[in-house]
Simulated scan of single mutants.
Amino acid sequence: MRIAFYGSSLVSAYWNGAATYYRGLIRNLAALGHEVTFYEPDAYDRQKNRDMDPPDWARVVVYDANEDAVNAVLAEAAQADIVVKASGVGVFDDELFRGILEHGRDDALKIFWDVDAPATLADLAADPGHMMHALLPQLDAVLTYGGGDPVVEAYRGFGARHCAPVYNALDPETHHPVPHDERFACDLAFLGNRLPDREARVEEFFFKPARMLPHRRFLLGGSGWEPHQLPENVRHIGHVSTRDHNAFNTTPLAVLNVARDSMAKVGFSPATRVFEAAGAGGCLITDHWQGLELFLEPGREALVAETGEDVARLLEGLDRDRAGEIGRAGRARIMAEHTYARRAEQVDGIFRSLRDVRSSRERKTA
């Protein structure tokens, strides 16, 4: 089936946390026979910070961030069997949402793919006049980056016909064990852009342990931390290209995952970093969130912390042998159950089921 996918960016991970998610899913959907065109705006300097060339498994259309260009790419939706609008494009989001319904063929599936469901649902709850209230019932389905039953039930409550979580996963071709790289040598590493929805938790789970353990070395990657007063034993290296993520995850004694406030509150929302780190064989320390056990077994496949003190305690009790055991166990679990090949099979099944439902509905009304 031909899929028109309107998202933030496929070719750049710069200020675009969904890049790995899109790449893994779309590449594996292409392997199942789908023809995907990904439409992304030239915005937020993403095109100046590309970390991959346009792939051979998807057609990438980059358009200017203006109304005429948006209308031009929306007109191409009429060529697709499935039209997808992802959340968080960053520009013309409302116009793109309306556009997939206006320009998609009557027989095409129309899908909203929410990569930040907690934030979207909070907006819907706070604003009865939000334009999505009227548009959700017109869609065939909402797919989400995560969230489990709470998100599914919330979307159904707002009128969605169908909602299903499609969790992050591992792409073994891009995230895998590599030799250690001294640029990333440390005891605990954390990679994440500075965001208001995560800053307090980063303070608790990363900066607090760093202050508690002045004899340990901490490494901070990501943008926006420059004005922050860092502990002396924290080294900040700025944006880390995706080509260096494997070394960033495998070189440190342990790598930290910190959920955003909204994701931690909802639960069932593993960050891309969880799968990248485990897939590279890194020893993962993660803050606790509901549903973690669906992906990794605490204590055996990942270490879990409720507080910053827990992170410090876990790090002090960790040596290379123990870290290696956890990293290998985590990688084995992710490889067995949580690859993008499996997620693509799930999505392909959803598409086919939705088309069957559509056909049945049309027969009843004929």
Rank of each mutant, 00 (worst) to 15 (best):
H236C: 07
G99V: 07
R216Q: 11
D149H: 10
A69E: 07
F351K: 00
A80K: 05
H176E: 09
L296M: 03
V61H: 02
D127V: 02
H239F: 15
G291Q: 01
S241R: 13
V73L: 03
Y63D: 08
P179Q: 02
A302Y: 06
D348Y: 06
A43F: 15
A18T: 13
A264N: 07
E76V: 10
L354V: 05
G282F: 11
A254R: 00
L32W: 01
W57C: 01
D149R: 15
Q79L: 11
S262Y: 12
A65F: 05
H103S: 10
F158R: 04
T250Q: 14
H162E: 11
G282K: 09
G157E: 01
T144N: 07
L294F: 13
S223I: 13
Y14S: 00
R260W: 12
G192Y: 08
P298W: 10
S8C: 15
P214T: 03
R260I: 06
R320V: 05
V357E: 15
R183A: 13
P298I: 02
Q47W: 09
E153P: 02
V70M: 04
A86P: 00
A141W: 00
E173S: 12
T339K: 05
A210T: 11
K364N: 04
A185S: 15
H130E: 05
A125G: 09
V311Y: 03
E276V: 04
R59K: 15
D127R: 08
V36G: 08
I285A: 09
W225T: 06
A117T: 03
L318N: 05
L213V: 06
V234H: 01
A336S: 12
G221H: 03
V60N: 03
V115M: 13
